[in-house]
Amino acid sequence: MVELPTNEVVVDLDDGGRWTSLVLGGREWLWTNPALSSVPRTGFTSYIDVGGLDECFPTVRGVPDHGALWNQPWASLDEDEDWDAVQYGEAVLLRRFNGGEPPPEITESGAIWADYRLVAPPGYHFTWTAHALLDCAVGTRLIAPTGTPCRLYPEATGHLNVPWPGTAPWFEASWPSPGGIEMETYDSNDGSAIGAVLVHLSTISVRDGSDELTFSLSCPGQPVSVALWRNLGGFPDDTPYRSLGVEPMLGRVFDLDEAGPGDAAIVPESGELTWRLVISARSV
């Protein structure tokens, strides 16, 4: 048996800054796709889902799919308080782990926190997610407040008990059963693959047996949500597999081009925006 540390995050700066491991509460939480290569994806033009956690920016879906960072190498700025950085066009995104003052809610060792700093022109619009694919068992539950607005995306059409509302890019209903789809359980394979966004939500928990993982995102003055991707053997068509994506999000839509008022994060007049993601684990 391999002795695991209480908490640890491992990143691959050459492979889009991807988180390759997240150990909290004595277990690994991130899923790795065993069927795909884990070599750096630098130079690839189409997204390759190798698992772990990708930083999706400045969009999640649309162009470029899964954002523009997953195939861009990051640089370590060791002389600047352990920040790592990547540039996309006129924007620079920086990230560091467990820096600065610990979050006040951290009372035990089963937690890590990631601070982000975006430097970009005032008014710069974007969406961002920490696109985490989790290694969880059948029956894992997603815990969010009942009644949270949930935006379902077109791939859910065949599973809705109500008609799709015209040409709208999403269908909005309430958690945990939007449109009659029971979304809170990572169930057995049924051939479905559904994307959703829980809007106005800053905290969500994932309960796998007696282990519970909690994501909390803080960015005052900006739209905060949680994106979900529940794949029960429905994607891709040729070689389907299972995956559970739980993605703390700035913004309220997958595709930046579909953002209406209040749906995207906006860089303020200072030209800099900061946010913090806290991930904690406990036994229940």
Rank of each mutant, 00 (worst) to 15 (best):
L217R: 06
A173N: 04
W175K: 01
R141H: 05
P236F: 00
A35R: 12
W128I: 09
D115P: 01
L160Y: 13
L277S: 06
F235H: 13
R207K: 14
L201N: 05
H200D: 15
T185C: 12
S218T: 14
F126L: 08
S21V: 01
P145W: 06
F44R: 15
R252H: 05
G52Y: 03
T274L: 04
W175S: 06
E81P: 00
T167M: 14
R151K: 15
S216N: 03
R282S: 09
V278Q: 09
T45N: 10
I181Y: 04
V226E: 01
G100H: 09
L24D: 07
F254E: 13
I181Q: 08
V86W: 08
W70I: 04
W74S: 00
A196E: 12
D14P: 00
P64Y: 08
H66P: 03
L134K: 11
T148R: 02
P104T: 13
D255W: 05
Y47Q: 07
P58M: 02
D80A: 11
L213R: 06
L22H: 11
A196L: 10
A168T: 10
V138M: 01
E155N: 15
S21Y: 04
L250G: 02
I48S: 09
D54H: 15
L244K: 08
A111F: 10
L4G: 00
S76F: 12
N71Y: 02
P261S: 14
A144L: 03
W229V: 08
L94V: 03
V92Y: 02
L94S: 13
I143K: 08
T32G: 12
S280G: 09
R151Y: 01
T140F: 01
C136L: 10
F44C: 15
R207H: 07
C56A: 13
A91P: 03
A193N: 07
C219H: 07
A85T: 15
W113E: 07
P163M: 15
T157M: 10
H66N: 08
H125I: 05
G233F: 11
S270W: 00
A91M: 06
S38W: 07
L30C: 09
A137G: 07
A227G: 14
N161P: 00
E81D: 15
D54S: 11
V2C: 03
G180T: 13
H131T: 11
G89S: 00
D238S: 14
D237S: 12
D187W: 00
A156R: 03
I112E: 05
D190H: 02
F215P: 05
L213I: 08
R117H: 02
E269R: 08
A264Y: 10
R96G: 11
V278R: 11
A264L: 11
V206K: 03
L160C: 11
G209P: 01
G17A: 04
G260H: 10
R41H: 14
W275A: 08
C56F: 09
G123M: 01
Q72E: 15
D187P: 00
C150L: 01
C219W: 02
S46V: 12
G100S: 11
W164A: 03
P73V: 06
D82N: 15
